[in-house]
């Protein structure tokens, strides 16, 4: 058992496995659909696109499906999965809480409120243009997490895991009600928002990929550069301080990073739950809790996971589509329950 663990924890191998999982997911995601695209064709088409040469022996129909329909969708799903997974991993480390993720903390709901308000009031920040929606989502996400943490501290100074989650759920419900209220008040034209809220990466195209990408890069850079601090804070803020971490500043930085990622992801795909919970948890189980690797590995597995979830969502009741959030919740909620039960029994034992 120990040797299997050791073998799995070999870091080079870990990255190889996680990257392979992602690549396989991408290929499956692009290949499978109402029209099947052979893997070889996909490789050729993508290769040609990347290296700018005229592909030979590829079908223009496939080219169109891959480049304009499937690939943007798969890439977007991958980026959203990566964003949510790394944000979840960071929140879990920071709050020493295996149940924390953007969804359970209420951050996703906060981001949604920001997005819906932008649409509701028709807000456009002149300088931001297309980025108004994600920017406001991020601001709301950040404000929400600050409120949740402040509120949780008021209730319970020790900030127990369950208290934080409960507070997050209270905030989620409240913010959900605010969204419903806004939708009810506007009547028909925001009906489409409901579909968006359930979480989906369909029919978004390359634009949305471009919207999310800068936020993913900035957010991931912030979190990846804080991996040492996350390790230290896993042992409690006081110990982190003793080790030499500037706790208040780093905590803010990590919360901002997590909010940027969550806000960006919500802005392009709505609220997709449990990715940020399940992925870091499983990644930690397999490869250990060291954030120097956990964050990056979670990004890889998270994007692979969401691509597969999206594949399921659009094929399982084909030709109709399920919202992707349904799939992630179907997988995520039971995992959430198992983690909770395990924690309980550990505490008792």
């Amino acid at each position: 058992m120990l040797s299997i663990r050791k073998f799995l924890r070999h870091k080079g191998l870990a990255y190889l496995l996680a990257a392979s999982f992602l690549i396989v997911s991408i290929l499956l995601g692009v290949s499978i659909g109402s029209v099947s695209v052979p893997i070889l064709q996909i490789v050729k088409i993508i290769g040609a696109e990347i290296f700018h040469y005229k592909p030979d022996g590829t079908d223009p129909l496939f080219e169109n499906i891959v480049m304009n329909i499937r690939l943007p969708r798969v890439v977007l799903a991958g980026l959203v999965g990566a964003s949510l997974a790394i944000a979840g991993a960071a929140f879990q480390g920071l709050l020493r809480n295996p149940l924390a993720d953007p969804y359970t903390l209420g951050v996703s709901s906060g981001a949604s409120v920001g997005a819906v308000m932008t649409l509701f009031f028709g807000i456009t920040i002149p300088a931001a243009g297309l980025f108004t929606l994600p920017l406001l989502s991020i601001v709301f996400a950040f404000i929400t997490i600050l409120f949740v943490l402040m509120f949780a501290r008021q209730i319970d100074r020790a900030m127990r895991v369950e208290t934080i989650i409960l507070t997050g759920i209270i905030f989620s419900s409240f913010l959900g009600a605010v969204i419903s209220l806004m939708i009810a008040l506007t009547g028909d034209e925001l009906r489409q928002i409901i579909g968006w809220l359930l979480g989906s990466v369909s029919m978004r195209g390359w634009d949305y990929v471009l919207i999310l990408l800068p936020f993913l890069i900035i957010g991931a850079a912030i979190l990846l550069s804080s991996s040492h601090e996350l390790n230290a804070m896993s042992f409690g803020e006081e110990r982190a301080f003793h080790i030499g971490v500037n706790v208040q500043r780093k905590k803010m930085l990590i919360l901002i990073g997590g909010s940027i990622l969550t806000g960006g992801a919500v802005a392009v795909s709505g609220t997709i739950g449990f990715v940020g919970l399940v992925i870091p948890h499983l990644t930690r189980l397999i490869w250990g809790p060291d954030h120097r690797h956990l964050l990056l590995l979670s990004m890889l597995t998270g994007s692979g996971f969401l691509i597969l979830a999206d594949l399921l969502a659009r094929t399982i009741i084909s030709p109709a589509e399920l919202p992707i959030g349904v799939i992630t919740a179907l997988i995520g909620a039971p995992v959430f329950a198992v983690i909770l039960m395990k924690r309980r029994s550990e505490r008792r034992g």
Binding site: R96, R239, H242, G244, G288
Partner: peptide
């Protein structure tokens, strides 16, 4: 600054939180 202080003072407290399964060496 916190880093400077950590090079001079180290602390061993009564209880230590460990929520994740870090290895001893880590």
């Amino acid at each position: 600054r916190p880093k400077e202080l950590a090079k001079v003072i180290a602390v061993l407290s009564q209880h230590s939180e460990d929520h994740f399964s870090y290895s001893v060496k880590e």
